[in-house]
Amino acid sequence: MNIFRFAGDMTHLISILVLLLKIYATKSCSGISLKTQELYAIVFVARYLDLFTDFISVYNTVMKLVFIGCSLAIVWCMRLHRVVRRTYNKDVDTFRHYFLVLGCFLLALFVHEKFTFQEVLWAFSIYLEAVAILPQLVLLQRSGNVDNLTVQYVFFLGAYRAFYILNWIYRYLTEPHFGRWIASVAGLVQTALYADFFYYYFISWKNNAKLQLPA
């Protein structure tokens, strides 16, 4: 474990807690893409299959349970909670995210570390996580300026993978035979997708204005 990875995990945890806070405190999920949340639930379930078969550390197991638990709780909240579900605007959350699932699964069938059930699903979860933010970014573009908590959520979510890239560079430099090309390339793509968001986020922060994404 290195500081970059720990910072990445904590930033990821903060992003999920910010989202839970927003939904719980405002009893509203306006501005949040349910499709992105569903993609993240699939990412965590597909990636943490080894939860009960491969014990790495208490930290690793606890964080996996937290990520799976929170992502499923958010999807449950947005779909079934009697108050929150009414604030979900499905007319603006129209990204065809099932194509993302299919595309990532097909890619995982061809590009993986080993052709086993667990490794193919692991690669699938890595690819899917790289593009899971797309429905949310599209929704942000559509709904113009959104509330701060949603913007913070996307910001922390983007920052976490950027920390992981530093983690992979660090591990590549310090560990022999460390080659996580699948995760590193997908992580670069994932962070690149946030690039324009980060740019407009920084501009709005500098001008102390609300975030305005160009339509």
Partner: peptide, 10 residues
């Protein structure tokens, strides 16, 4: 062959 590295990251 290099053993498949365990996925020790989240």
């Amino acid at each position: 062959a290099r053993p498949i590295a365990r996925h020790d990251e989240l």
